[in-house]
């Protein structure tokens, strides 16, 4: 029995398309609402990020409720950085109670990369433990062994990093996440079809869905910046070079072109079960990418 529309789609053979939006810094929700309205009918689910890059924002759960209100399918991103096990459990109970059942369990970026560098990092649990904890709640008890009155049910996902330069330890963790009950995986941004193919060969032994992470870049400079500063992202030189060929002011166009091409090849060559498009603060271009890639996320 599916807990959500997205859960249902995960169990089908459909090519899935998800994307993500960042909540506002402040209380003005007009922009996020605009983005939700623009995207909700073009993708299968919308992730709402949880203080992405450790930058303090409107909360993820708040964003998810907005998506819900507008008739979209939210995925709650939940990191271990800011809450201890009490707060995490409480928030999961709350999310479920408000119909937010898709949860992406993440470790979270280090506070050192964010805008509150002096904050105390919590990391009471890690992503694997978070997944297990969510499954534990489904069983009717909390981490303290106490019985719950009313039991939640989740569609759980997690992340994996197939293009890590030292991938073996990542795969160990992937296995643990699968064992912990992760049903789907959004990959870290990938750029090389060959790497993705190799990873899929490995992942196909498990009954999980893999969504290839697509990062759209607006310029070669941005790609280089991400290589140097964004945790885990490794943009290959070929992509940087291609971005560099773009005429002045047409960088984003080039980035969209590259992303769309990659999505097409993922779909045509069965390199993953779907894609997760990360526009990095440029959510408005997501429809353009999907259009260019000739894919659509509506599989009603």
């Amino acid at each position: 029995m599916s807990v959500s529309l997205f859960d249902e789609k995960l169990n089908s053979d459909a090519f899935l398309i998800t994307t993500e939006i960042g909540p506002p810094k402040g209380t003005d929700t007009s922009e996020i609402l605009h983005d939700i309205d623009m995207l909700k009918d073009k993708v299968d689910a919308i992730n709402v990020t949880d203080h992405q890059s450790s930058v303090m924002r409107y909360p993820s759960i708040g964003g998810c409720l907005l998506v819900k209100e507008r008739g979209g399918e939210p995925v709650l991103q939940m990191t271990c950085r800011d809450r201890n096990r009490l707060a995490l459990q409480a928030e999961l109970l709350f999310a479920y109670s408000r119909g937010v059942c898709n949860v992406l369990c993440l470790t979270g970026d280090s506070v050192d990369v964010g805008d509150h560098k002096e904050a105390k990092p919590v990391f009471d649990l890690d992503s694997v433990q978070l997944l297990r904890m969510a499954r534990l709640l489904e069983g009717g008890t909390d981490m303290g062994g106490n019985e719950l009155k009313g039991v939640p049910k989740f569609c759980l996902g997690s992340t994996v990093h197939p293009e890590a330069d030292f991938v073996e330890p990542q795969l160990v963790k992937f296995d643990k996440k699968v064992a912990a009950g992760s049903q789907f995986f959004q990959t870290q941004g990938v750029f090389d079809p060959a790497t993705l193919r190799r990873f899929m060969q490995y992942a196909s032994q498990f009954n999980v869905k893999i969504l290839a992470g697509i990062i759209v870049m607006a310029s070669a400079r941005m790609a280089k910046y991400m290589n140097d500063n964004v945790p885990g992202i490794i943009v290959p030189q070929a992509v940087i070079d291609e971005l560099a060929t773009a005429e002045k002011g047409k960088g984003l166009q080039k980035g969209i072109e590259i992303a769309a091409r990659f999505i097409r090849s993922v779909k045509e060559e069965n390199l993953a079960h779907g894609v997760h498009v990360m526009a990095v603060g440029n959510e408005r271009i997501v429809p353009d990418i999907l259009e260019a890639a000739e894919v659509s996320g509506i599989h009603a």
């Binding site: 280090s110 990092p121 990391f123 433990q129 990093h161 890590a164 330069d165 885990g232």
Partner: peptide, 28 residues
């Protein structure tokens, strides 16, 4: 940097930690 217990996070690059290119990733 996060003190996590079940393997590396996805922030590791070249065997180094996401917060410092000088520091080894403990999980690697």
């Amino acid at each position: 940097t996060k003190g996590i217990l079940n393997g590396p996070c996805a922030g590791t690059k070249n065997g180094r930690c996401e917060v410092s290119k000088e520091m080894d990733c403990a999980w690697v």
